[in-house]
């Protein structure tokens, strides 16, 4: 039940975004498949940190990942039907596409529900290490980037900005990300692995995190077909725009999950 709640809360902003409905019929099937596979991998990873149960066994975590995916798919299907966005006279390919796209945020919500809404006795599992931190940043960046990437505003913003705005945005994204990383480190909410030190935190977490955010942005834009036919300069600008929410997601992931 909690998983369904999480799925609905995480997914409903996207369920009510029309660009997301359109994606269902224009997204390249191969890219969608790659994306769904990646989503399963992310769910599996999240399961290790914030799954339904206190587990760290290959089989259990895989089961959790599939369960979250199932919950995400079912809740997306139900809500899309409820909103009248999918109807029986649509071709099956379109229905499947629409549900598949929406199931991604819904399943992440289902997985995160345990740590967000749950009564977690042990707040942090604490055994993540550096690789785990990077993974959490990746998951956070992917989730937030995915939330805004389908909207047309992303493209429009990148057209409105001059290159100077773009440069400023890159710097601001990096600073915001570092501020989050640093304050987390400072308040001791979560001990960063490593001996601290400003530059080490900056390069090891903020720069690495921003790199992840940029890669994720590029990947999400490619998945949604936003980069097709674009020149290199436009791709860089669009990545910078989406890099901002991605960086925020990367920074917040360690708080949320």
């Amino acid at each position: 039940m909690r998983a369904f709640g999480g799925a609905v809360i995480f997914a409903f902003p996207l369920l009510m975004t029309m660009e997301m409905w359109w994606l269902g019929f224009y997204i390249d099937p191969l890219r969608l498949l790659v994306f769904l596979a990646l989503n399963l991998a992310i769910l599996f990873g999240l399961s290790c940190f914030a799954g339904f149960r206190e587990t760290f066994h290959l089989k259990e975590d895989a089961l959790d990942a599939f369960a979250a995916y199932g919950v995400g798919t079912i809740s997306s299907a139900v809500l899309l039907t409820l909103f009248g966005i999918i109807t029986w006279d649509m071709p099956p390919g379109e229905i499947a596409g629409k549900i598949a796209v929406q199931s991604v945020p819904a399943s992440i919500g289902a997985m995160a529900a345990r740590s967000q809404l749950g009564d977690n006795e042990d707040d942090e599992k604490g055994t993540e290490g550096y690789a785990g931190q990077l993974f959490l940043m990746l998951a956070g960046a992917l989730f937030l980037a995915f939330n805004v990437a389908p909207t047309e505003e992303m493209i429009v913003i990148s057209f409105l900005m001059t290159p100077w705005h773009g440069l400023a945005l890159v710097v601001v994204s990096l600073l915001v990300l570092h501020a989050f990383v640093y304050s987390l480190d400072f308040s001791g909410q979560e001990e960063l692995p490593g001996d601290g030190g400003f530059w080490r935190t900056f390069f090891g977490y903020s720069i690495a995190g921003y790199g992840i955010a940029l890669l994720v942005s590029l990947y999400v834009l490619w998945t949604f077909g936003r980069l097709d036919g674009l020149g290199v300069g436009q791709i860089a600008m669009m990545t910078a725009v989406l890099g901002f929410p991605s960086a925020l997601g990367a920074a917040l992931a360690r708080l949320v999950v």
Binding site: P163, W164, G166, L167, V170, F203, L214, L215, V232, M237
Partner: peptide, 17 residues
């Protein structure tokens, strides 16, 4: 990798500017 990507971004956009 992060440093490389960040510098590449700054480079591309500066080149455009």
């Amino acid at each position: 990798i992060g440093l490389l990507l960040t510098l590449a971004m700054l480079g591309f956009i500066s080149w455009q500017a």
